[in-house]
Amino acid sequence: MPRLNADTRHRVAFTLNGRPVSGQAEPRMLLSDFLRHEIGATGTHLGCEHGVCGACTVQIDGGLARACLALAVQTEGADVRTVEGLSPDGGATLSILQEAFREHHGLQCGFCTPGFLVTLDALFRDDPHASETHIREMLSGHLCRCTGYAPIIKAALAAQATLLARGAVAHPDDTMPEEDVHA
């Protein structure tokens, strides 16, 4: 990749929730602003813009990331997942995790919610049996000023129980290999 000039807008292309997207960005443009203003994916919210509040949390190549602590040009060629990718059918139906938040009052104003959802989505994909302690530790990277967190923990545990009961996993590509059984 050649050196990208500060004053010029450059084409940036990556995969967003499984679909190719592209737009124009100056090098200084944050991924959060690129998602919202260039792509129009406004599900990712911006609270503090310096990595503290967690509202803008997304997944880049499977790992969690603050979208305000990354550049659009850094994500060239990457695989990005945002809250818009959680619904199994592009928005008509809530995911199990989202439904649990609705059911257990895991949100009030909803501003911080996309970040919480994206973190829990990654957690239950990587560690379906995560302990409550681990869940709480993961959510310590998010601020919520409405709920007092207890309903969020409740929603997370309920979603985890449903996911485990249904044998469902957050990502279709996260399949366990067949167990070798010698009865």
Partner: peptide, 13 residues
């Protein structure tokens, strides 16, 4: 809060 302008170089090595 947005960064001031800078060039960006993705170093290959």
């Amino acid at each position: 809060m947005k960064p001031a302008a800078f060039d960006y170089l993705r170093a290959g090595d």
